[in-house]
């Protein structure tokens, strides 16, 4: 089997080259080269701009380990990633289930459109509209006070929940889409078979549907967890003072402090940590899937 595959791919590679090349050239130019430059920067003492002196150093990486601030921030970013992913599962999976298994035809198309609609608007606009909703005297506060008989004070702006709300809103469509794809591939007769064997709807969900849609859940979780850990836009705008995370610190190095070498080093540490987490999780997830 493996031999056959190897032979097949060797014979198949040459005609496939014209198809592969554009993508790989683009990846090389657009990702590999800048990334290599960043690796290079991360070992420098200063930016080689305006004739500044620079030498190679490991100091940028050492900074991460010598100051507990960075690892503390990284931990809180990882926690943020976990929480956002969890909420995306809680909110996205049921929606994907209804889209894939309950709705049919036109109503499915309409609801589907609503799921991907946020992709069509600018991310920054979305975040600022959340700011309008969440601040004291904002839309949520005003609306709730108009309905409720007692006075409450909703000021979620510049808080951890606001960051979570903004990030979940940005990323939940990924979970809906990946779960929708795997759920939709589950034959309805499997659900019927489960019920004909005496399983309640809940038992069918836990024993048949969730295990079979695990690949979608895992893909969605990976698509969400990784960028959320490094996110900076939502934490900065919606989190304010409480919104200092690992991602915002990296952003500061590039935008505010102009310490690109430190920013690059912090980025690669994040990359390493995320890869390690994914590698550790892989065997567990593969068994679950």
């Amino acid at each position: 089997m493996a031999d056959q595959l190897a032979i097949g791919s060797r014979r198949g590679l040459k005609p496939a080259l014209p198809l592969l090349l554009p993508a790989y050239l683009w990846l090389t130019v657009a990702i590999f080269l800048p990334l290599s430059a960043m690796v290079f920067f991360s070992f420098m003492t200063d930016l080689p701009l305006a004739g500044k002196e620079w030498t190679f150093t490991l100091g940028n990486y050492a900074a991460f380990f010598s100051q507990s601030l960075y690892s503390t921030l990284l931990l809180s970013s990882l926690r943020l990633g976990l929480e956002v992913t969890l909420w995306c599962v809680v909110i996205g999976y049921p929606a994907a289930y209804v889209l894939a298994k309950v709705l049919k035809g036109r109503s499915r198309e309409a609801i589907f459109l609503l799921v991907i609609l946020p992709f069509w608007s600018n991310g920054l606009v979305r975040i600022f509209s959340w700011a309008m909703v969440l601040r004291e005297g904002g839309i949520l506060d005003t609306a709730l006070n108009a309905v409720l008989p007692f006075k409450i004070n909703i000021d979620l702006m510049y808080s951890y929940p606001a960051v979570i709300i903004g990030l979940v809103h940005s990323y939940v469509p990924y979970m809906v889409l990946t779960c929708y794809l795997t759920l939709q591939a589950i034959d309805d007769s499997l659900i019927e078979a489960g019920r004909s064997l005496g399983a309640s709807r809940r038992q069918v969900l836990w024993r048949v549907i969730i295990p079979l849609s695990m690949p979608g859940l895992i893909a969605g979780a990976a698509l969400i967890f990784v960028p959320v850990v490094g996110s900076f836009m939502e934490p900065r705008i919606l989190g304010g003072r409480t919104g200092t995370f690992y991602g915002t610190v990296i952003e500061d190095q590039f935008v505010a402090v102009f310490n690109w070498p430190l920013g690059a080093a912090l980025s690669f540490i994040l990359l390493a940590v995320v890869l390690i987490i994914l590698a550790l999780a892989a065997p567990v997830l593969r068994r679950a899937g």
Binding site: L190, E192, G194, R195, S196, G198, A199, P211
Partner: peptide
């Protein structure tokens, strides 16, 4: 009575075996 309470056995056209 819902299907799970009818105590029936069913064989489906495409067999519907749980692939996992």
């Amino acid at each position: 009575v819902p299907v799970e309470k009818r105590r029936i056995g069913m064989v489906f056209q495409n067999y519907a075996l749980f692939p996992n």
